[in-house]
Write a protein that binds this DNA or RNA. Sequence first.
DNA 1: ACATTCCCAAGCAAAATAGTCAAGATTATC
DNA 2: GATAATCTTGACTATTTTGCTTGGGAATGT
Lengths: 166, 166
Amino acid sequence: MKLTTKGRYAVTAMLDLSLHYGEGPITLADIAQRQGISLSYLEQLFSRLRKKSLVASVRGPGGGYSLGRGADEIFVGEVISAVDENIDTTRCSGAHNCQNNERCLTHDLWSDLSNQIYGYLNKISLQDLMDRQAVREVADRQDHPDTEQPGLDVSLVDGSGDMAGA
Amino acid sequence: MKLTTKGRYAVTAMLDLSLHYGEGPITLADIAQRQGISLSYLEQLFSRLRKKSLVASVRGPGGGYSLGRGADEIFVGEVISAVDENIDTTRCSGAHNCQNNERCLTHDLWSDLSNQIYGYLNKISLQDLMDRQAVREVADRQDHPDTEQPGLDVSLVDGSGDMAGA
DNA sequence: ACATTCCCAAGCAAAATAGTCAAGATTATC
DNA sequence: GATAATCTTGACTATTTTGCTTGGGAATGT
């Protein structure tokens, strides 16, 4: 299974896009600066996101990217799938030829796990993330990098850990 | 997050150990042959498993490894944690300095996800895996590599997909 | 003694990851 | 229509991780 920086960056960038919805197209340069991601690397990621229609692009000056659909219709699992080829944990990637062309001992375990993770991530939309207070506070900080905000040093971790809660 | 062959091998080997419980210590050479894993690689994995007391070892002829506790007391999550250093999905590994010493936009998302995966895998014991019919059938095949078993080509996938079900 | 097993550390090739670089296409604006 | 901003694409590179090998040891039953 793959859940690496690539997927993290993609979700982060998509969330940035959501948070600045309504300001017209957002340039990758803006996202790169706000989120601390290499511009060229973002380009590669957005190339894949575009192919899956998760973002729409406008070229030329004043151009940039915007969400391909509403933030409540784009789910984290989709974004990760778009950039990480597969979220599958099995070695055989779903086939059952893991060992000498036969099913390996733990094939089903990884298969089930993949389904669990995928199900979990596909319940969380970008809108859900935006609604989190912690996200809003970080976004505020990123939009106003000059002003110090010393009073916000509380624990921002939600800690609810509820599966269905997203 | 890391869920690679290393973790898969470890769980597979531990399951092999469980399945042959009662036959005295199991040598790594046996496991290597049955599961198609490099012996030297297994040695490395078992070194870590041993440090976490997940297995016990006996040296010398007739020696080998056995489970450190009952198969119903060893959980898949533990095994993976023992060999993959961390199952954490956050970049900062739990600290909140992901971006310029501050919390990144999606920190909590990955933190929550880690908890979900960990919670899921820590509910599944080696005994649970052994109770699965599909596992038994594969184990049978591995124990009797000579005899052909053509009648077992049914779909072995459990498909229940229930989170609490393990 | 000796073969069998666990134990350990170093090293290494291939793959994947994270990122760079260079060139081009499109389009708003002056 | 020149220019600059922006997306678009492909190739290339450095670094890290993975999966594995090598080569030694240490313990212990026979």
